[in-house]
Every structure is written in structure tokens, then in C-alpha cells.
Simulated scan of single mutants.
Amino acid sequence: MRRGRRGTPAGERGSVLADETEGYLLAHAHREQARHEAEELCARMPWLTTAQAEELAAHYVHQRLDVTRQLMLGTVRPAAELRQEYESRYTELRRALLRRHAAAACAALACAAGVGAVAGVLIR
């Protein structure tokens, strides 16, 4: 498999770039949605001055992005833990399967050797 500059397979590098791009676009969409909501909020308060509306909108966007960040981190952490648990369990199962296959191959080889020895004795 061809490796990229940082030691990752070339296909994974494209995947990482796609993930980063998707994350950027998602963050941008959340920011735009928060700005839109802030504008709607300020529009419902016509008594605010322009400076007050801008300050309220900036505060709203900042708070909304903080909440979104916390929600995403709350999702990412358990997902990473769950992934680690699945990878550990998969490794255990793969090792157990390898041991079973090795034991079965040894048993088959021993049986074949035994049959060959018995056949050799009977032929003589």
C-alpha cells in the first residue's frame, strides 16, 4: 500500500482531508444558522439600538457555538471510548480464533502423522 508524507496510507490521507473539510463546512453551517437566529431575535426587539443588536447577536452566536461545541464533544468522547472497546474486543476474538485454527491444524497434522505411521506399520 502506498504511504503518504506523514506515514498514512494514500487513501486515508484523502479521507482525513474529506473529514476535515466536512467538519469545516459543518462548523460554518452552525455559525450561519446561529447568526440567522440572532438576527431573527434582534428583529423581534425593535427597541434595541444598532450597537445593542450587534452586541446581542454576537453574544448569542458565541453562546450558541459554545453549546454546539459541548454537545459535539459530549458525543465524540463516548464514541471514542466505544470504538476502543470494540477494537479491544475484536482483537481478543481474532486472537482466540487464531488459537483455535492453530490447534485444529496441529490436531489435523497429528492425525495425518498417526494415520501415516499406522499405514506404514500395516504395509510392512
Rank of each mutant, 00 (worst) to 15 (best):
M1D: 07
M1V: 09
M1L: 06
R2W: 13
R2L: 14
R3F: 12
R3L: 13
G4A: 09
G4L: 11
T8K: 05
P9E: 12
A10T: 10
E12G: 04
R13D: 15
V16P: 14
L17S: 04
L17W: 05
A18F: 14
A18I: 13
D19F: 13
E20T: 13
T21C: 05
E22T: 13
G23Y: 15
L25M: 01
L26T: 01
A27T: 06
H28T: 11
A29G: 00
A29T: 07
H30D: 05
E32Q: 12
A34W: 08
A34E: 07
R35S: 03
H36E: 07
E37F: 15
E37A: 15
A38P: 10
E39N: 05
E40P: 08
E40C: 12
E40A: 12
L41I: 06
A43N: 01
R44K: 10
R44T: 06
M45I: 13
M45Y: 12
M45S: 11
P46Q: 01
P46T: 06
T49N: 04
T49R: 05
T49S: 11
T49L: 10
T49K: 08
T50L: 07
A51C: 07
Q52I: 09
A53H: 04
E54I: 08
E55V: 08
L56G: 03
A57R: 11
A58C: 10
Y60E: 07
Y60V: 09
Y60F: 13
V61F: 15
V61E: 14
H62V: 13
H62R: 15
H62T: 11
H62N: 12
H62G: 09
Q63S: 14
L65N: 01
L65R: 13
D66F: 14
D66V: 14
D66T: 14
D66R: 15
T68M: 10
R69Q: 11
Q70D: 10
M72P: 02
M72E: 02
M72V: 05
T75G: 00
T75K: 01
V76D: 02
V76I: 07
R77C: 01
P78Y: 00
P78K: 02
A79Y: 00
A80G: 02
R83T: 06
E85T: 01
E85Q: 03
Y86V: 03
R89F: 00
Y90A: 04
Y90W: 02
Y90D: 01
Y90M: 02
T91A: 01
E92W: 00
R94Q: 05
R95S: 02
R95W: 03
A96W: 00
A96R: 09
A96V: 06
L98I: 01
R99Y: 05
H101N: 12
A104I: 04
A104T: 04
A104Y: 07
A107L: 13
A108W: 09
L109C: 05
A110C: 08
A110V: 06
C111N: 01
A112M: 07
A112D: 00
G114C: 07
G114T: 02
V115L: 04
A117M: 11
V118P: 10
A119E: 02
A119G: 04
V121C: 04
V121W: 02
R124N: 08
R124S: 08
